[in-house]
Amino acid sequence: MTGFFDIPSDLQHSWLGLIGLHLREALLPVLAGLVAALPIAQLCARFRWLYPPVLGVTTVLYAVPSLAFFVVLIDYTGQTELTVMIPLAVYSLVVLVPAIVDGVRSVSQETLAAATAMGFGPLRRYLQVQLPIAVPAILAGLRVATVSSISLVSVGALIGNQGALGNLLADAMFYHRPVLAVNSVVTTAVLAILVDALLVLVRLVLTPWMPPGARPKRKAAARPEPAAVAGEEAAR
């Protein structure tokens, strides 16, 4: 029997085990990326001159292919999960910084002036006014980073079976069992869609003030670059 859920024993995990592994390898880096992106983005929003160079660096980093990134790290971190997770964290960071900067900057000057006039201090203003209004943009960035991360974990299969569900792909080729590849693709895609949907839900809960159907505002034609990068550079 070579059914859909029969996972070759060399992977040392059940199907559900692989899913757990996959989620961990994909989501921890996004979390790490978010934690690092928040202060960096805040600095960029605060000191405007900082943003163009940061944007340049992030664009270049994002262009570096994942496989190249992985293999260069092998020399330092070996063929381990960490080797997969470090690049994913960097990609998440790179997607999230422009998303957060755009979100924080999309808060209108009038709103900020009103907040200041009401006596908000800078920190309070950031936490209670700017960040909540930036939530839609931040979550849009998180969606892209997460979906991309879930897709990219599979590539880890190439560097010593560190690809979780991606390892099924290697086995599909090794044992000539296309069904394993189907399993990998379908499971990964469903995971991505579910996590994406979850994030949409989070956004709805966090932003009851947004009119239904409205999308995070993209500043018309002004400064299209970062928004486009955040919005569209998804799975590779």
Binding site: S154, A172, A181, S184, T188, A189, A235, R236
Partner: peptide, 19 residues
Amino acid sequence: ATAARALPSFGLLVLMFVL
């Protein structure tokens, strides 16, 4: 676009190859 994005490209590559 959302659906297409969710498809893992490496997985798709291997799947197409084995098929």
